Amino acid sequence: MEIRVAVKGGGDLGTGAILRLHRAGFRVWVTELPQPLAIRRAVAVASAVYEGAISIEGHTARRVEDPEMFPLLWARGEIPVLVDPLGDSIRQLRPEVVVDAIMAKRNTGTAITDAPVVVALGPGFIAGVDCHAVVETARGHDLGRVYYQGSALPDTGIPGPIGGHDVLRVLRAPRAGRFRAIRRIGDRVEAGEIVAYVEEEPVRTAIAGVLRGILADGLEVVPGMKVGDVDPRAEVRHCFTVSDKAWAVGGGVLEAVLCLLRARGMLPWA
Rank of each mutant, 00 (worst) to 15 (best):
P116F: 12
P116I: 11
P116E: 11
V117W: 10
V117A: 08
V117S: 10
V118I: 09
V118C: 10
V118Q: 03
V118K: 09
V118N: 04
V119I: 14
A120T: 09
A120Q: 03
A120C: 15
A120S: 14
A120P: 06
L121S: 08
L121M: 13
G122T: 00
G122Q: 07
G122C: 06
G122Y: 02
G122N: 07
P123W: 02
P123Q: 05
G124D: 01
G124R: 07
G124H: 01
F125S: 07
F125I: 04
A127D: 05
A127T: 00
G128V: 00
G128D: 06
G128M: 05
G128W: 04
V129I: 15
V129A: 14
D130Y: 08
D130C: 04
D130P: 05
C131K: 09
C131T: 13
C131W: 06
H132K: 02
A133F: 06
A133I: 10
A133C: 04
V134M: 03
V134R: 04
V135D: 03
E136S: 09
E136P: 05
E136N: 07
T137P: 12
A138V: 07
R139F: 09
R139W: 07
R139V: 10
G140Y: 05
G140A: 03
G140D: 02
H141F: 14
H141G: 03
D142A: 10
D142Q: 07
L143N: 11
L143Y: 11
G144A: 03
G144S: 04
G144P: 03
R145K: 15
R145V: 11
R145D: 05
R145N: 06
R145T: 13
R145G: 01
V146H: 00
V146M: 07
Y147A: 11
Y148S: 05
Y148A: 04
Q149D: 12
Q149N: 09
G150K: 02
G150I: 01
G150H: 05
S151Y: 01
S151T: 15
A152M: 02
A152V: 07
L153C: 06
L153V: 10
L153R: 15
P154H: 08
P154Q: 08
P154I: 09
D155R: 09
D155M: 06
G157I: 00
G157D: 06
G157A: 05
I158H: 13
I158T: 15
